[in-house]
């Protein structure tokens, strides 16, 4: 059971997002980087699938050369090999991203002479949130796809994917090979072990340069929503604030 999992390097934004003066990029001077939370869970799920059924996890990213850091993080928790599709462009759109990933999957499968039983993604990237790259790759590869998966069972030849929508559970049966996009909550990602960290340090990162077609969507500017900043009315400090808090809850009508 071989699994390819796709991740994206994103800044670790905290309490607020600061933009560069060009209003087109996030100011990342003081920020570390990570992968989107859904993808961290996709890596963990891929590792769990291969632990249960044998096989290996390959991790792939499309991004700047620095994204090797995120590939090594995946190796440190169990991925066996890593592939970087380097791009100078800070943000490739979803069509270009899907095309680059599809051609990399095809090339890797040709070189290995066997397909990946599962290609996994996060449901959507934390930064751009395009909600489509996994589905585009699935169609391009001619494979079935389930998205937003919160529980995955893999048996010989089939993946059973479950998720929740408006209070109902939805279950999809996918013949393998298939594409699955997962959501955080499907598992609790492990921390890297010491041998894992050592392996990550030494891991070889395979690099393919992707083609980058033109996009019909062109980003002009980014902005932080303005109307949201409020100045909280302080009701008091510690226990002394409780009577004021109770009156407020009464006024709001949430206590009868």
């Amino acid at each position: 059971m071989d699994v390819l999992v796709c991740v994206k390097r994103v800044p670790m934004v905290g309490g607020r997002i600061a933009l560069q003066p060009d209003q087109r990029h996030i100011d990342t001077t003081l920020l570390g980087f990570t992968v989107s939370p859904h993808e961290e869970c996709a890596v963990e799920e891929a590792v769990q699938v291969t632990e249960a059924h044998g096989g290996e996890v390959t991790v792939l990213t499309l991004g700047p050369p620095e994204a090797a850091e995120q590939l090594r993080a995946a190796v440190s928790v169990g991925a066996a090999s890593a592939v970087l599709l380097p791009t100078e462009e800070e943000g490739l759109g979803p069509i270009a991203t899907a095309r680059a990933i599809t051609s990399a999957v095809t090339r890797l499968e040709r070189e290995r002479s066997r397909v990946f039983d599962l290609v996994m993604f996060g449901n959507e990237a934390a930064d751009t949130g395009d909600y489509q790259v996994g589905i585009r790759v699935a169609h391009a590869l001619g494979r079935a796809v389930a998205t937003g998966v919160k529980q995955l069972e893999v048996t010989a030849g089939e993946a059973v994917a479950r998720r929740e929508y408006r209070g109902a559970e939805e279950l999809f049966r996918l013949p393998l090979p298939a594409v699955v996009t997962v959501k955080e909550g499907i598992n609790l990602p492990r921390y890297p072990s010491l041998p894992g960290r050592m392996r990550a340090k030494k891991a070889t990162i395979v690099t393919f340069v992707p083609e980058t077609p033109d996009e019909a969507v062109e980003m002009r500017t980014l902005r932080v929503p303005t109307s949201e900043r409020r100045s909280a009315e302080v009701l008091g400090h510690g226990k002394e604030a409780v009577p004021a808090l109770v009156s407020l809850l009464e006024k709001m009508g949430v206590v009868s």
């Binding site: 997002i17 949130g129 980003m219 500017t221 980014l222 932080v224 929503p225």
Partner: peptide, 11 residues
């Protein structure tokens, strides 16, 4: 973008 913490203007 970022779940609504950032807005993107595009054409």
């Amino acid at each position: 973008r970022w779940g609504g913490s950032l807005l993107e203007d595009s054409v």
